[in-house]
Design a binder for these strands. Structure first.
Lengths: 158, 158
DNA sequence: CTAAATGCAAAATTTTTGCAGTCCC
DNA sequence: GGGACTGCAAAAATTTTGCATTTAG
């Protein structure tokens, strides 16, 4: 499987880029913004606003859920984070901005990242190109991850 | 651009398949279910539950929104319709079950279908296959459609 | 006739907003 | 210091649920 996109060693660098982008965009570097971004950047599970809020409350007890929502919206507008496409009610987010794709387990709802360079460099069908301006193309794979498959087998036996 | 998936001529056939599936699955063929399915099958714009409800109220004034939600959920469970992945709050649906992909205009939120056979037959990267059982793989393209591009140009001039 | 489906109303869930106080630059 | 940001509370938006009634098979 593709390796983790944000090893600990690079988190620091990602934070610096974040701070730089904020300064350029005239976004104030508040404690809340820094911590929300850091929490999302180090997460690999594409958390929802609520999940982030829950995680951050341990260290920031007064952080409110609406600030998390507002902050994520602001980040999204400045292309610092992305909303992940799902069919579920709660929106989920990622700080990974490098081109990649998603594997979604329909059973446990886990979302995994993967790279697919040969796809990325494949041109689109000709008739699509006249639809408009293409910003990006992404693959989403749905299925059942190994963990959930194993669980199902256990259940069947009982 | 790819042609329409459900020309009028085939709607009748699609309804018959629908009815057959309902009978097999012991789903009662109520007036509401038939009309909700027909409305979705003939739509090409991937409507939300609310949009479907609004459209159907003209001919079925007593149809309630919660029935639309409940019915779509039931249909989805029986693989008669699909929820479309979006980043928006309202879920959107389609009755098109044949393998296809989506173009989404980030400006007007329009969702268009397209086919891409060469992609469909491309094998996945080897390291993905050990993730679990793959059910399907789909491409989503984000961008701005021609209509919205034209609008933007007009706005800039004023 | 009977279990399933619907409509109504009310609740639950997720996200957004107004406003007063707080904090970064 | 001033405008942007946050927390609180309340509202809005979307979806789900309980229950009495209706309906398909």
């Amino acid at each position: 499987m593709s390796e983790n996109f944000t090893p600990d060693s690079s988190l620091q660098q990602q934070m610096e880029t974040f701070e730089e982008t904020c300064r350029t965009a005239d976004l104030k570097l508040t404690h809340q913004r820094l911590e929300i971004y850091r929490e999302l950047a180090k997460a690999t599970d594409h958390p929802s606003a609520e999940m982030l809020h829950k995680r951050l409350q341990k260290t920031m007890p007064t952080l409110s859920l609406d600030t998390v929502y507002r902050t994520l919206t602001t980040f999204e507008q400045h292309h610092l984070v992305k909303k992940v496409q799902t069919v579920d009610s709660q929106a989920r987010f990622e700080a990974q901005m490098v081109q990649h794709h998603h594997l979604i387990c329909d059973s446990c709802k886990e979302i995994m990242d993967f790279h697919w360079n040969s796809f990325d460099s494949t041109p689109l069908p000709a008739d699509i190109r006249q639809w408009g301006t293409i910003r990006n193309k992404n693959v989403t794979i749905h299925g059942t991850c190994q963990k959930c498959q194993a669980l199902k087998k256990v259940k069947k036996r009982t």
